[in-house]
């Protein structure tokens, strides 16, 4: 009895507040916009019995999804999200790898502290971390002041409100997600493997390329997914740093909902975004399982 209660409590919570809302999103994405409260039609009328349900189902259609294909704003937003997520994931990998490598090679007694230093920003507000770049990247900001002072440029660069600022913001805020799996893969690496490679005639660089790099593959894959997946739906970073010219699907969804109040289209955008994410999520899960099996 107690076991049933223990299962039922979290189970029913998740069904009520995760599964059902999600089904509602799908349903509304198949509905039509209406000037009413709530601003969509049809509404499920259970008092009409079976006929009510039939009427309800017959009124659902894929018009919203068709609409998404007609307006190239959505296409561009999806593609632009994909591009921004891919480029910033790669950039994060390039920044994180040397850092994780340095951590894994640091003296044993330093490592817990270094780990804490990587995790610490993760605990402080995401919003504030994104915001902190605003003052740095602005036209009269510190970066431009510095670059002018050391005579690299003559007049300020427009960085804020461009995709570059979004890349910087993403790499900065998601760096811990990339560093941690890389670090755990590199830290496990047996130092004698590198000695063996050198002993068999490798230079240091060859040993890195032939042994360290392939053996950190799982960390690279995990880190890339951990950055790529959430960045696809990112809203805060493009909203604060990207300006009006940076299109990302999370921002489009937000504006569809709050500015245009077009709930059916916003829901359709959400459904498509999720469908796009299913593939990387499944691949990620499979990679994790494979790794767990290899270790277990």
């Amino acid at each position: 009895m107690k076991r049933a209660a223990l299962i039922l409590l979290p189970y029913s919570w998740l069904i009520a507040l995760f599964l059902v809302p999600f089904l509602i999103v799908i349903k509304i994405s198949l509905s039509d916009i209406a000037l009413a409260i709530p601003p969509y039609t049809p509404n499920l009328d259970l008092s009409a019995g079976w006929q009510g349900i039939k009427d309800f189902v017959s009124q659902l259609d894929f018009d919203n999804f068709k609409f998404l294909t007609t307006d190239d704003l959505y296409w561009k937003a999806y593609l632009s999200s994909l591009k921004i997520a891919s480029i910033s994931t790669f950039a994060a990998l390039c920044v994180a790898y040397p850092l994780a490598y340095g951590m894994a090679r640091a003296p044993d007694e330093w490592r817990p502290t270094l780990m804490m230093l990587v995790i610490l920003p993760f605990w402080s507000s995401f919003l504030i971390r994104v915001y902190s770049w605003k003052a740095i990247l602005a036209n009269e900001g510190l970066l431009n002041q510095l670059l002018i002072a050391i005579r690299v440029i003559d007049e300020p660069l427009q960085i804020l409100n461009t995709p570059t600022a979004v890349y910087i913001g993403i790499v900065y805020t998601y760096l811990p997600f990339m560093v941690l799996p890389l670090y755990s893969a590199l830290e496990k690496l047996d130092a004698s493997l590198l000695e063996a490679a050198e002993d068999l005639g490798c230079t240091r660089f060859q040993a890195f390329w032939l042994v360290t790099f392939p053996l950190s593959r799982n960390g690279i894959i995990a880190g890339c997914f951990l950055v790529f997946i959430p960045v696809m739906g990112e809203f805060v970073i493009p909203a604060l740093l990207g300006g009006s010219q940076t299109l990302m699907i999370g921002k489009v969804l937000w504006e569809e909902f709050f500015s245009n109040r077009d709930w059916p289209v916003a829901s359709a955008v959400a459904v498509i975004l999720l469908l796009l994410l299913v593939i990387p999520i499944v691949l990620f899960q499979r990679n994790e399982e494979k790794q767990r099996e290899a270790e277990g």
């Binding site: 004698s192 000695e195 490679a197 002993d199």
Partner: peptide, 13 residues
């Protein structure tokens, strides 16, 4: 000179 390591240090990949 080549060495046979105590852990064998075989490349797992």
């Amino acid at each position: 000179v080549n060495m046979m390591f105590q852990s064998y240090a075989l490349f797992p990949h």
